[in-house]
C-alpha cells in the first residue's frame, strides 16, 4: 500500500495511475500536476508540471499505444496535453475551446483513437480528436445549460458490422440535475442526444460508465443530493432502468464514482472523506464491499 502525503500544497482533486500502474498523476488547487513513480511500497516524485493558471481538477492518462500522454483540465478553462519522452515532460497541446472551468477530462477507449472528452461549466462538452497530422477537430455539444460537471465514455463495445465510430457513446452529468447519454452520428459528425435520465434532485457530480459490456450497460451517477443511481440498459438499446444504489441517503454529498475494470465493484467517494465500495449480488441488489478511510 502506497501512501503519499503532502504531495501538494493545496487540496488534491484527482489521482490516477497509468495503464501499467507504475505512474501516478495527481493534480491540485496549487495549479500543478505531479507525476510519481510507484513501485511496490515506494514512490518517487519524478516531475511537477506547471502550466495551468487555476486549480487543476482532473487528469487522465491516454492509452499507452499513443505514448506516455496525460491530459489535464483546470478552472482556467483549458485542457493541456502533456507528453513524456525520454524522461522529459513537455506540454504538447492546449485545448482551449471552453469559456469556463473545465471540470472533467477523459480519453476515449483506445479503439477510437486519441479522442478526448472534456466537460465544462460553460454548459458544453467537447470531443477533440488529435489527428496524425497534428491538427485537432473539436466537436462542441451543448449539453447542460447551467454547466456540465462530468462526462464519461462508454466502453468500446465490439459490435459486428458496425464501424467502431458508430457506437461511440458518452454520458454527461450537469448542474441541471440531469444525466444525458450521447451517441455519435457520423453523418452529422456530431454527438446527438440519445437519452435524458431524470432522477437526481441536485447537481450531478460524477457519472461513470461501466467499462465492461456484459448482459447490460451500467451507468452510475452520483450527486450533490447524496444519492447514487445505477442506470442499466439492455443490449445497448431500449430504455434505461433506474435503481437507487441504496434507498437512504449517503451521509454527505457524493463526488466521485469509479468502476473497476470488469465492472463488478463500484467505488464511491464524497464530502465525508470516505471511500465506499459496492457490488451487485446475484439477486441484483447492491451491497457494500468495503471501505477506505484516510
Amino acid at each position: 500500500m502506497v501512501t503519499i502525503t503532502n504531495a501538494h500544497t493545496e487540496l488534491i482533486h484527482d489521482a490516477v495511475l497509468d495503464y501499467y500502474g507504475k505512474r501516478l498523476a495527481t493534480c491540485s488547487s496549487d495549479k500543478s500536476i505531479k507525476i510519481f513513480e510507484v513501485e511496490g511500497e515506494t514512490h518517487r516524485l519524478v516531475e511537477t508540471l506547471y502550466g495551468h493558471e487555476g486549480p487543476v481538477w482532473q487528469v487522465d492518462w491516454a492509452h499507452p499505444k499513443f505514448g506516455v500522454i496525460l491530459a489535464s483540465c483546470s478552472y482556467d478553462g483549458k485542457v493541456l496535453i502533456w507528453k513524456e519522452e525520454n524522461g522529459r515532460w513537455s506540454q504538447i497541446a492546449v485545448h482551449a475551446v471552453h469559456s469556463a472551468s473545465v471540470n472533467s477530462v477523459k480519453w476515449a477507449p483506445h479503439e477510437y483513437g486519441p479522442l478526448l472528452l472534456a466537460a465544462s461549466s460553460d454548459g458544453k462538452v467537447s470531443v477533440v480528436e488529435f489527428k496524425e497530422n497534428g491538427t485537432t477537430a473539436p466537436i462542441l455539444v451543448d449539453a447542460h445549460a447551467i454547466g456540465v460537471n462530468t462526462a464519461s465514455w462508454a466502453s468500446a463495445a465490439l459490435q459486428d458490422g458496425a464501424a467502431p465510430q458508430q457506437m461511440r457513446r458518452f454520458v454527461t452529468g450537469g448542474a441541471d440535475n440531469l444525466v444525458k447519454v450521447w451517441k455519435f452520428n457520423p453523418d452529422a459528425n456530431t454527438y446527438l442526444l440519445e437519452d435524458t435520465l431524470e432522477g437526481h434532485t441536485d447537481w450531478v457530480r460524477d457519472v461513470a460508465w461501466s467499462p465492461s459490456v456484459l448482459l447490460r450497460s451500467y451507468l452510475a451517477s452520483v450527486s450533490q443530493d447524496r444519492t447514487c443511481i445505477i442506470w442499466t440498459q439492455e443490449n445497448s438499446q431500449g430504455p434505461w432502468k433506474k435503481t437507487l444504489l441504496k434507498e437512504d441517503k449517503f451521509p454527505d454529498v457524493l463526488w466521485r464514482a469509479s468502476w473497476s475494470l470488469s465492472g463488478n465493484i463500484l467505488a464511491l467517494s464524497g464530502g465525508d472523506n470516505k471511500v465506499t465500495l459496492w457490488k451487485e449480488n446475484l439477486e441484483g441488489k447492491w451491497e457494500p464491499a468495503g471501505e477506505v478511510e484516510q
Binding site: 487540496l11 484527482d14 489521482a15
Partner: peptide, 27 residues
C-alpha cells in the same frame, strides 16, 4: 454565473489491475 462545482477533495479511482487510488483531504 460561474457554476463550477466545489472541488472534490476526496475520491477513488480504479486501475485495471484492481488497485484503488484514493485521495483524501486532511482536516
Amino acid at each position: 454565473l460561474d457554476t463550477t462545482p466545489i472541488p472534490k477533495g476526496c475520491g477513488a479511482v480504479w486501475t485495471a489491475a484492481g488497485q484503488l487510488v484514493c485521495f483524501f483531504m486532511v482536516e
